[in-house]
Nucleic acid binder design. Structure first.
Lengths: 200, 200
DNA sequence: GTCTATACACTGATAGAC
DNA sequence: GTCTATCAGTGTATAGAC
């Protein structure tokens, strides 16, 4: 391990930090919030994260992104080589993870941390979660399953769609999240327009 | 007007506040940031917004949402009654406005303000921007243009898609934003799968 | 590994001069 | 309408006891 000590207490700190940062954002989460979640005083955090809040945020964010990359690639690989199966595998994996709010990360979190860190995290983010999803679209196009299109645009949109499901109010989100994401994937592949061939 | 005085200086304050809040979020924007954008000292803000930061945020957010409602309904109404034309009209209007980051608003901004204000703003948000877009899908379904579906799910997703375009990195966003949003609308209506009828 | 105590900067907010 | 001055509260961070 590259970790400095990697005790079990440190793991609890990192997990709490990742969960809180990913849900509420960098600025909204204080070191006292994290400490309270772990059950210690905020000063004790500096034993596990000596370089302070920003370094802690960078560490857990990067860790989460790399986990996303590994999980996404595994989920996609073990799915059938059909675009719908692969998109559903990727989307279900994203739904099972701590929320990854790309939009907030770019508009709120990144400007709040050092420019160097921000640029590196942004690159990792795109390489980790955009690339695997872009590959799904590219390969499906190569197999002739779908029309050629801007894979980056599609991947970014799919990510946003998955995230949007978390924010739906209860009176709209009347079915399980996996069902809603599958419905969207069906729309993306087949469209909303009734297939003219079925009309005959 | 219901405004307390409604001078031109006050309008500058509200506009700067709305722009900054909508771009970076409630917590990330300080009163000193807003004051600097207007060109005054932060204490002077209390002349135009005597009730402080949270009340200012609520006011400009509500104002922006109501402007969205009016603008969306107008754009939709003057478009042809075809789903693609109406979705494009709505999306283009959203693109021309200050960014409306629904996801960050729900996960970051709302928990940071008073519960009463948060609930009211959330309701206004859904009534103002979700409802008009849901109507597009519902009416298109009634006209038989599209399959019946969860209009709320579709509306929330379309909003997220428009927002996602703002966060695309430069190497992906190689065409104008309106072109990218139009491409997505085509995907939603017609799907990515090549139409089988065109194959014969 | 966790605590208390403390230093220091920043933020929202108020008071009063001009 | 805008300013300077000032305050209390909170946030990050450090030092040192246990």
């Amino acid at each position: 391990m590259t970790d400095q000590h990697s005790t079990e207490a440190r793991a609890r700190v990192l997990d709490a930090a990742e969960q809180l940062f990913s849900e509420h954002g960098y600025k909204s989460v204080t070191l006292r919030d994290i400490a309270k979640a772990v059950g210690i005083k905020h000063a004790s955090l500096y034993h596990h994260a000596p370089d302070g809040k920003e370094a802690l945020f960078v560490e857990v964010t990067e860790r989460g992104l790399r986990r996303h990359q590994a999980g996404l690639e595994a989920a996609i690989q073990q799915a059938e080589p059909r675009i719908e199966a692969q998109l559903e595998a990727a989307a279900h994996w994203l739904l099972a993870q701590p929320v990854l709010d790309f939009g907030r990360m770019m508009s709120s979190d990144m400007p709040a941390i050092g420019e160097v860190h921000a640029r590196r995290l942004s690159e990792i983010a795109y390489a980790s979660v955009m690339q695997p999803i872009q590959q799904i679209f590219r390969q499906a196009a190569a197999r002739g399953e779908i029309k050629c299109a801007n894979a980056g645009l599609l991947a970014g949109g799919l990510l946003a769609l998955v995230e949007s499901i978390h924010h739906l109010p209860a009176h709209i989100a009347t079915q399980p999240k996996t069902g809603m994401v599958d419905a969207w994937i069906d729309v993306i592949v087949n469209g909303l327009r009734p297939n003219p061939t079925t009309a005959y």
